[in-house]
Amino acid sequence: MIIRSSNRAVRPLTAAAFVLGALAAPALATHAAAQMSMPQPPPQIVVTGRGEVQVAPDRAQVQVGMETQAKTAAIASQENNKKQTAILAAIRALGIPAAQIQTLNYSVMPIQRYDEKTQRVVIEGYRVSNIVQVETDKIEQAGPIIDAALTNGGNRVAGLDFLVKDRAKAQETALTKAVESARRQAEVAAKAAGGQIAELLELNINEYERPQPRAVMAMAKMEMADASAPTPVSEGMATIAVSVSTRWRFTK
């Protein structure tokens, strides 16, 4: 028999199709029943919170050094070593222990120029750079360290960073503020939605944000009129921050 509908011919179903349909029906019913019986997760509110604390730095890192140029690498290195020795002696004379003075970078690089006539790279000389890092727990020594380097032949101040040695207590305070901030946001959101928050379902503490050092660059004094004036420094305040992500159960 052919059944026609909307001017289309529909072929009669085979016995195999009836059998497959009969087998699939119970499976579909079971799947639907399983979905209906699965417990639905409770309504949730997901928020993030951030807390930060301002602390006074108690440690300084000063990076100073010498850069020289000469026709040969040997001459540039010899001149650099001579002046760097004087710089280190002046820094140690301030009472800085040798253990707090570390060579941070030493490099020898050719000074190159492209010759248009010969179409070749020409080495005109060599540049030697030597940078040392000096650490001190006395913030007030940062300026004298820079002065000691510049007045003894140094011509590079790569950076001045103010750090915090013990951040544990400040991190705990910042974490408390972050969680409190997240809870307040969740409470406000729940109230706006006509309900309230119940228990905390999840709390993730993100990596602590290290206080950003305040990098200070200094210029070589050369022969300026105020070359005898001490280098002024101001450590300011460091910010220690932490963020958290939370999930709270929402109830009406």
Rank of each mutant, 00 (worst) to 15 (best):
K177T: 03
K177H: 06
A178T: 00
A178Y: 01
A178P: 06
V179P: 02
V179E: 09
A182T: 02
R183M: 09
R184P: 01
R184D: 13
A186K: 04
A186D: 09
E187Q: 14
V188G: 02
V188T: 15
A189I: 02
A190G: 06
A190P: 06
A190F: 05
K191F: 00
K191L: 09
K191C: 01
K191R: 13
A192H: 00
A193I: 05
A193M: 10
A193S: 14
G194H: 02
G195H: 06
G195K: 00
Q196W: 01
A198M: 02
E199Q: 14
E199L: 00
E199Y: 05
E199H: 05
L200T: 13
L200M: 15
L200D: 04
L201T: 06
L201A: 08
L203W: 00
L203D: 10
L203F: 08
N204G: 03
I205H: 05
I205K: 12
I205Y: 01
N206S: 13
E207Y: 04
Y208M: 03
Y208A: 13
E209N: 12
E209M: 08
E209I: 09
E209F: 01
R210I: 04
R210F: 02
R210Y: 08
R210W: 01
P211G: 11
Q212Y: 11
Q212D: 15
P213F: 02
P213T: 04
R214C: 01
R214F: 00
V216M: 14
M217R: 12
A218I: 12
A218V: 15
A218Q: 05
A218M: 06
A218C: 05
A218F: 14
M219G: 03
A220C: 01
A220L: 05
A220N: 07
A220P: 02
A220G: 03
M222S: 00
M222E: 08
M224V: 09
M224G: 12
M224Q: 10
A225S: 14
A225I: 12
A225T: 13
D226M: 10
D226T: 14
D226F: 11
A227D: 07
S228E: 15
A229S: 13
A229H: 11
T231W: 00
T231L: 05
T231G: 02
T231E: 00
P232T: 10
V233M: 12
V233E: 07
S234G: 12
E235K: 09
E235Y: 10
E235R: 04
G236H: 07
G236M: 11
G236P: 13
G236W: 11
G236Y: 12
M237K: 15
M237N: 14
M237A: 14
M237G: 04
A238Y: 07
T239M: 14
T239P: 05
I240P: 11
I240M: 11
A241E: 08
V242H: 08
V242E: 03
V242I: 15
S243M: 10
V244M: 09
V244T: 10
S245W: 06
S245G: 11
T246L: 09
R247Y: 00
W248S: 03
R249K: 15
F250S: 06
F250N: 03
F250Y: 13
F250L: 15
T251H: 05
T251S: 03
T251G: 01
T251M: 06
T251F: 07
